[in-house]
Nucleic acid binder design. Structure first.
Lengths: 129, 129
DNA sequence: CTATCTGCAAACGTTTTGCATCTGT
DNA sequence: ACAGATGCAAAACGTTTGCAGATAG
């Protein structure tokens, strides 16, 4: 498909299905979520293909691997600077599009060159309180 | 041992060895790191005991499970409010003891009650540049 | 005494790998 | 044509669990 040409990865039908699933997706899906969704269209879909595609997209900077879940990796097609607000009860997630320019004084950074930050906010969502 | 009495967990020799290893430990060890270290003293040590002890400590609020590493859980005996600065090249970690009171405007939080935040700073460490 | 912990091994869920075959470009 | 993707199964990895025997309180 034309719209994915710019990714510079080999576009197979399976990959296009994965890309369609990820496009605009705000659910921060796991590999299994992606696998299950795309398997409906491609019953032969394998995890190898899902992971392979995610790896290719990560390398091109078109998917972000998230560490919000300690038991499995989750993925975000939105690579713009943003953070996550997570409900401590139901684990639902809200994207926070706000660039916090946090500086650290030199005596705290121990000689590091600071590049950026990623913030996990936690709270209790509307439904859980 | 007297010094661990306040934890209110059953103190076996294995647990004391784990607690001694964790005391003041700034290395953010994985379960395997702890296992390997304590196995020197207790050759029969098992992962079950390591995880069981970590679980007990977590429940008492004396150990924090970290999500800084997407491939494995890592643990921090320091439960005070602090953040982490991680070198993107060598993955070395520096603790940042600074409480950032970040507020989110109501229109961003979608009805969440905000509790707190955890920040991962990233940069390049002195040795890597 | 007994609730709980230990150690072993087996089971589990997630991710990676090997390899023969297939397919975009 | 061929570099690279697919699909399957097996393996690898971190973590959890079941259970018989041991032990702290």
């Amino acid at each position: 498909m034309e719209e994915y040409r710019h990714l510079n990865i080999k576009l197979t039908p399976q990959r296009i299905a994965i890309l369609d699933y990820l496009k605009g997706n705000k659910s921060h899906p796991s590999a299994e979520d992606i696998f299950k969704a795309v398997k409906k269209e491609f019953p032969t879909m394998s995890f190898a293909t899902v992971y392979n595609t995610l790896e290719a997209l990560k390398n091109k900077g078109n998917v972000q691997e998230l560490k919000i879940d300690s038991s499995k990796k989750r993925y975000d097609p939105d690579c713009s600077t943003h953070h996550h607000l997570i409900c401590t009860k139901c684990k639902s997630i809200v994207d926070i599009f706000n660039d916090f320019k946090l500086n650290l004084s030199e005596d705290l950074t121990e000689g590091f060159d600071l590049i950026g930050n990623s913030i996990e906010f936690f709270g209790v969502c509307h439904d859980c309180k």
